[in-house]
Computed example of a mutant assay.
Amino acid sequence: MKKLSALVLLATSLLIGAQTVRAEEPAQIMLLGTFHFTNPGLDTVKTSVLDVTSADSQQYLQAFSQKLAQDFAPTDVLLECAVGFQGKLNEQYQQYLKGEFTLPVNEIYQLGFRVAKAAGGSAVRCFDEREIQWNAGPLFEQMPTKAPAIQAAFDTLIADVTAQSNDMHRTLSLADLLRAMNSEQQYRLNKSIYLLSNEVGAGDGFAGADAAASWWHRNFRMYANIQLAASPGKRVLVIAGQGHIAVIKDFLASDTQRKAVSVDSFF
Rank of each mutant, 00 (worst) to 15 (best):
Ser5Ala: 15
Ser5Phe: 08
Leu7Pro: 11
Val8Glu: 12
Val8Trp: 09
Leu9Gln: 14
Ser13Gly: 14
Gln19Ala: 12
Ala27Asn: 06
Leu31Trp: 06
Gly41Cys: 01
Gly41Tyr: 09
Gln59Glu: 09
Leu68Asn: 04
Ala69Asp: 10
Gln70Asp: 14
Asp71Glu: 12
Phe72Asn: 08
Leu79Lys: 05
Gln94Asp: 14
Gln94Pro: 02
Gln95Arg: 11
Leu97Asn: 11
Leu97Trp: 02
Gly99Ser: 05
Phe101Gln: 15
Glu107Leu: 01
Ile108His: 15
Leu111Glu: 09
Phe113Val: 00
Val115Gln: 03
Val115Asp: 07
Ala118Asn: 12
Ser122Phe: 02
Val124Pro: 10
Phe127Pro: 08
Phe127Val: 15
Asp128Pro: 13
Asp128Trp: 07
Glu129Asp: 12
Ile132Thr: 15
Gln133Trp: 13
Glu141Gly: 01
Gln142Glu: 15
Met143Tyr: 05
Met143Asp: 12
Thr145Arg: 15
Lys146Trp: 05
Lys146Met: 14
Gln151Arg: 10
Ala152Glu: 15
Ala153Thr: 06
Phe154Gly: 08
Val161Cys: 12
Val161Lys: 14
Thr162His: 03
Ala163Ile: 05
Leu172Cys: 01
Met181Tyr: 09
Asn182Glu: 09
Asn182Met: 00
Arg188Gly: 08
Asn190Ala: 15
Lys191Pro: 05
Ile193Asn: 11
Asn198Gly: 02
Glu199Phe: 02
Gly203Lys: 05
Gly205Met: 04
Gly208Val: 01
Arg218Pro: 06
Arg218Asn: 10
Gln227Arg: 14
Ala229Trp: 02
Gly233Asn: 09
Gly233Ala: 03
His244Leu: 03
His244Thr: 04
Val247Trp: 10
Phe251Pro: 07
Asp255Ser: 02
Arg258Asp: 12
Lys259Met: 12
Val261Thr: 13
Ser262Ile: 01
Val263Ser: 14
